[in-house]
Design a protein around this nucleic acid. Sequence first.
DNA 1: AATGTAAGTGAGTAATCACTCATTAATATT
DNA 2: AATATTAATGAGTGATTACTCACTTACATT
Lengths: 211, 211
Amino acid sequence: MKSKQETKQPEIRRKKTAEERRQDILEAALNIFTEKGYNGSTTAEIARGAGVAEGTIFRHFATKKELLIAVLSPKILEGIISLDKKHKDPVEFFRCFMKNRMEFIKENDGLVRFMFAEAQYHDEVREALSNGILGQGINIVQPWFEKGVKQGVFKPVPFPSVMRTFMGMVLFYGVFNHVFPGLSPENTIEEATDQTLEIFLHGLMVKEAKT
Amino acid sequence: MKSKQETKQPEIRRKKTAEERRQDILEAALNIFTEKGYNGSTTAEIARGAGVAEGTIFRHFATKKELLIAVLSPKILEGIISLDKKHKDPVEFFRCFMKNRMEFIKENDGLVRFMFAEAQYHDEVREALSNGILGQGINIVQPWFEKGVKQGVFKPVPFPSVMRTFMGMVLFYGVFNHVFPGLSPENTIEEATDQTLEIFLHGLMVKEAKT
DNA sequence: AATGTAAGTGAGTAATCACTCATTAATATT
DNA sequence: AATATTAATGAGTGATTACTCACTTACATT
């Protein structure tokens, strides 16, 4: 009789390290969270997605909320830092930065929308976003903006407004395409970036039409 | 013995019309939804907020989701239409429109954030938003934009990009202040609008710095 | 006053949820 | 080989959920 060996699972035990299991869970959680939202996702579904038992989740994360934080924390800074090149002038910097950000958003579209959606309801998400994105974002953008102002190429608009309009234009790229599909049908990232940057830097009005 | 008269509720019965009750429920639902999100809100809590029994909710709305739709539907168009004045030129129109929109968002901040947050997860919300806001928005904005292009005051940027950047800047005003409080500390709507409009119309760069 | 109808109620219900725990198994240590 | 440790399991649990329904009540009609 081969009862015990065959009736029980023959293969699903430990073939991965604890860390790998953790990553499986995080990955599945991210997928399900972004699709259904935090409160709309169940730990059972996440377990299924990760290919583990539900109890396993709680061995790695004390609560569901802790799982949420763990999912977002690394993602919040990811991609922010990748501004390695030395840019010569502020305009060049903003061009690269916007292109870089919009590509990131295009690729991590669901994640970005999820982060800002859940930030509405969870203090922890809001704080993580605020500390991560804003903190890093300011550190990177503000010096370049101020340099541009000093050089006389940028207007002395208050920096928060610059940051706000910039982020709004860039972040809304993902939201817009998701909520209003069918619009901007064959807009490539390059075109979208160029047109967004054009408005951000030079505005919608033609120069000659000065008041 | 006064048992039956006193143990039961002495006063809470019909003093309002069915329509008034419905409005009470919608109002309470809106408050609780915007605070905790759709899936984070319970019908029990909404009933409490509206001062009715839980069963009463389901006499007016078949399901919780139907309540969500009923909450949003009128709000989606509200305020959109209030562009009654005849504007003389496109620039003037965009100035008024942006000011109008940003005031609306400032006042209905929670609602707006809620709509876009839930649009991530519910097809019905997305469609309502898409049909309502975009449909009406395009009808209003596009003619003015095209008029401006014909007059030579606006650049011939593809309209979707104009709409997207405009909406992004405007809508993100509410999100920004909520997610990143402490920034732009004493920014009045007027200042914020002016600075946003400045960037939208003329861009961040000074004119002389033409390439 | 009697009766019919529409509105409101809240205890009840089946389903679902996040989370637990006793048990089992895989690895490390001796 | 024996033992200890760590990881994984999934049936079970109490709490919570959206929704129901038998009943009560307020009003309108006669």
